[in-house]
Write a protein that binds this DNA or RNA. Structure first.
Length: 497
RNA sequence: GGUCGAUUCGUCUAGGGGUCUAGGACACCGCCCUUUCACGGCGGCGACACGGGUUCAAAUCCCGUAUCGACUACCA
């Protein structure tokens, strides 16, 4: 039997970082064993599901490169089948109609209300204690025919326990007494989550369910449904959760954009880098290597090397430099400066295009220059955005000057206001404007003026790039070329800032 | 409250009774390189939650405690 796994998000928001990691693990596992990776949109919560969310999730998955191997399943399309399954269980006496009026838990603080209720019921309420559980079929049918509203609940056996072997957590048990007679069908006849999941997983012939450990108790409930339905449950693997700093739940509401995949795409992350980072959150190959290609991840992935403890996604909302996890930022930078240049180029092109800095010559007459320049400046970049911000001076005459660079490297040495234009004059007659020749010219100039190499170079850097940091100035002169170097050395704009 | 799960440097992690004076990565700090630096090189700081067992030997096994998390819905 071929392995079939599924990623089953509910479209109530953008693709969450934890969901993305679940999708990644499902994907890696499927590919590792030569199985299929499927996608199911769990849009049964009509009130919260939106088409916009679905699109956002699909985009996020596409960005990460996880294409489903079969057509996408929309759970809401299967409601009839789920309903039929519940009715079948009712017919077989494995479920019963509950005529208890629907309870209205207040809309806010639902979690709290549920916990409070559970506390109150503690010790006084038996999970099997429902006056309609053992109603005779005739009575139940009569009430239903009379039009009394009812929900259908699963008849969980009085004694026993659910047991399953989790690929990550090992043998897990839960006594039936801890599990309520869960509702399968609402009084409006719409199916509930656990029923829908089980029915769809059966229909999709899912062999391995890999999901967050927040589903651990659901798994016990779902096994009960599998058993009632006379089906064999799939294998389960529960993943540790990704938490916010302080060990709190990482939530969309509290932590905002940081949990959304689109944020990373828009911030100039390479999907490959982020994927790599995600893979190492809760899993490791048990070796010191940390940078992996997708192929390597697929090859090395295994469920038994997934952790059992939750991971903290570290960031500091108040510090722009650490707006997201340090290691993710580092990994993206690592990818940018070490990946194959030809693979990086298309991303740089896209970035420059969106910043209106792109010129078609970069792929034609100026191809060699462009590649050399990208290769030069990527050394110190952290994300794709840097090519159009920090790197702007390499692609446009219209760039900003960093005030600190001006003050520290230019204005602090007033002589530079005449020296730099003078240096430009020395450049003018040069025929060979390359590294060594420039070095020689600047060297002589420095000697003449009785100053230091650094003073000239740092001042020139401020003028030519607007920044205090960057690659070797000799390389900058060379890549910018004689004309631009002269023009910018002579420019007085920065002196007036 | 109950059930279940987890607990190694600030963070991600290696570790599965002796090789652990606990290894790596990120971050941080210092030095070097250098015309600058966010590159690179070298080094430093820094952890087995606590208490009991078991054992010749425990980060590793067992039991308690603490802490954290999930779940506890006619949400998904």
């Amino acid at each position: 039997m071929t392995t079939r796994v599924r990623f089953a998000p509910s479209p109530t928001g953008y693709l969450h970082i934890g969901s993305a990691r679940t999708a990644l693990f499902n994907y890696l596992y499927a590919k590792n064993v030569g199985g299929k990776f499927l996608l199911r949109i769990e849009d049964t919560d009509l009130a919260r599901s939106t088409d916009e969310s679905t699109q956002s999730i699909l985009q996020g998955l596409a960005w990460l490169g996880f294409a489903p191997d079969e057509e996408i399943i929309y759970q809401s399309n299967n409601a009839d089948k789920h309903r039929a399954a519940a009715l079948k269980l009712l017919e077989e006496g494995k479920a019963y109609r509950d005529f208890t009026p629907k309870e209205d838990i207040g809309d806010k603080n639902i979690k709290q209300a549920i916990a409070d209720k559970a506390r109150q019921n503690q010790g006084v309420k038996n999970m099997r204690d429902n006056e309609y559980r053992d109603l005779s079929k005739a009575e139940s049918d009569a009430k239903a025919e009379a039009g009394e509203p009812f929900a259908i609940r699963l008849k969980v056996p009085e004694t026993g326990k659910t047991v399953f072997e989790d690929a990550v957590y090992g043998l897990l048990e839960r006594d039936y007494s801890e599990t309520e007679d869960l509702v399968l069908l609402r009084s409006d006849a719409s199916p509930l989550y656990n029923l829908s999941v089980v029915c769809d997983d059966i229909e999709m012939e899912i062999t391995d369910v890999i999901r967050g450990q927040d589903h651990l108790t659901n798994t016990h409930k779902q096994i009960l449904i599998y058993e009632a339905l006379g089906e064999k449950p799939p294998k389960f693997a529960h993943l540790p959760l990704i938490l916010a700093p302080g060990g709190k739940k990482l939530s969309k509401r509290i932590h905002g954009e940081i949990v959304s995949m689109t944020t990373y795409r828009d911030a100039g992350f390479l999907a490959a880098a982020f994927r790599n980072f995600l893979a190492l959150l809760g899993w490791s190959a048990g070796e010191e290597q940390e940078i992996y290609t997708l192929e390597e991840l697929i090859e090395k992935f295994s469920l038994d090397r997934i952790h059992q403890s939750n991971a903290t996604f570290n960031f500091d909302a108040n510090n722009p430099k650490r707006w997201t996890d340090d290691k993710a930022i580092w990994m993206n930078a690592e990818y940018i400066r070490t990946m194959n240049l030809q693979e990086l180029l298309p991303f740089v092109k896209t970035e420059l295009k969106s910043a209106k800095l792109w010129r078609d010559e970069y792929e034609d007459d100026d191809k060699i220059w462009f590649e050399k320049t990208v290769d030069l400046i990527r050394e110190r970049f952290f994300n794709l955005k840097d090519f159009s911000t920090q790197g702007r001076a390499y692609f446009s005459e219209d760039f900003d000057f960093d005030q600190a660079a001006i003050d520290k490297n230019l204005k602090k040495f007033p002589d530079l206001q005449t020296w730099l234009p003078e240096l430009a004059e020395r450049f003018a007659p040069m025929e060979d404007f390359t590294h060594d020749a420039i070095h020689e010219t600047v060297g002589k100039f420095v000697e003449e003026k009785g100053t230091k190499f650094g003073v000239i170079m740092n001042g020139a850097r401020a003028l030519l790039t607007g920044l205090a940091v960057g690659p070797s100035m000799l390389a900058v002169f060379e890549t910018l070329g004689k004309e631009k170097s002269i023009l910018r050395l002579k420019s007085q704009i920065a002196w007036n800032l």
